[in-house]
């Protein structure tokens, strides 16, 4: 079936179907950025594995960071169905030519940050990603179904970490509040710039890659999160949050996007560390990858 007909009928585009180059390029850019976000996102949480305050929490956190590596794998595999390869995408990440989500350029300063990332960052990711399960590109949509299930598990774990802290000793509650104060605004920025300034949105909507606008998704996240904060007994650092009966939504204050743009430009608190960590892992592992390639070439030769 022709590409336009497929889209019109809300069908799925599969790897062998013909598709416009621009559609392919947009998907590669988006899926790669998503995959890179998963693997860079291993670092802020990985920062607390060695110090997790109980063995149960350590096991949960290791499993979570492992899931992120797994998400990276599915997503790179989805991108590869579009004719690119993982090694090239990684080179583009390492060379700064492809991006990852700016949220991971914020530091995890306390244990509560692990909870805040689970609750807010994974919560925002879910709001962004659930519609992607209906994305017009089949392999991406299917990868997202699996990822969303795991993300929602992570989000509940984050909520539970914060709930335990918020109902613990005063120092623990303060730690939880501080983490939420620091992660709230950056989480709202995860939905991207306001609709009026979003460069790729309109075309992605027309292609069935994107289903809802940035601002609609941001509103959905706020509506979902405000009542959860009440259950936690924590406050969100925005005095303008209040229910608006007329709109049927929570009002909230203006997001300061100048910060987002600074972080995107590379001036966030951890941009350099995150990239240096990733590049070091890649370079330090080169001899291992080369050995694996040489070994399998020898096996193949021996079998021939």
């Amino acid at each position: 079936m022709h590409f336009e007909e497929l889209l019109a009928g809300d069908g799925r585009v599969e790897p062998r179907d013909e598709m416009p180059d621009a559609y392919r390029r947009t998907l590669v850019r988006q899926i790669a950025q998503h995959a890179h976000s998963e693997i860079i996102g291993m670092q802020p949480e990985g920062n607390w594995i060695s110090r997790a305050p109980s063995l149960r929490r350590k096991a949960i956190l290791m499993a979570k960071v492992q899931d992120e590596a797994g998400h990276g794998l599915y997503l790179y595999a989805a991108a590869e169905t579009l004719g690119v390869d993982r090694a090239d995408l990684l080179d583009q990440l390492h060379g700064g030519r492809q991006k990852y989500s700016s949220i991971f350029n914020y530091p995890t300063l306390t244990w509560a940050d692990v909870g805040a990332i689970g609750w807010l960052v994974d919560g925002a990711a879910i709001v962004n990603q659930v519609p992607l399960c209906r994305c017009s590109y089949g392999p991406y949509a299917r990868a997202m179904v699996r990822i969303c299930k795991e993300e929602s598990f992570h989000q509940r774990q984050g909520f539970e970490i914060l709930h335990t802290l918020a109902h613990g000793a005063p120092a623990q509650k303060a730690m939880a509040q501080d983490a939420v104060d620091r992660y709230w605004w950056p989480s709202l920025m995860m939905f991207g710039p306001p609709d009026d300034d979003s460069t790729h949105s309109a075309q992605s909507m027309a292609w069935g890659i994107k289903r809802f606008s940035n601002d609609d998704l941001r509103q959905r996240f706020v509506d979902m999160t405000v009542p959860q904060a009440e259950v936690l007994g924590l406050t969100l650092p925005d005095p303008e949050i209040r229910w608006n009966d007329e709109r049927g939504h929570y009002d909230f204050g203006a997001v300061d996007f100048t910060e987002l743009f600074e972080v995107i430009k590379g001036n966030g608190p951890c941009n350099r560390e995150r990239m240096a960590h990733r590049v070091a892992a890649h370079e330090d592992g080169a001899w291992v990858r080369e050995a694996a390639a040489a070994y399998s070439a020898k096996r193949a030769e021996a079998a021939a």
Binding site: M62, A63, V65, Q66, A69, Y76, A281, G285, V288
Partner: peptide, 22 residues
Amino acid sequence: MSWWISRAPELEEDVALANIGL
């Protein structure tokens, strides 16, 4: 072992070493 998670030579190995550590 958990030190390797995010530092492994390739992504499959991040998963495998995390699994072993777990």
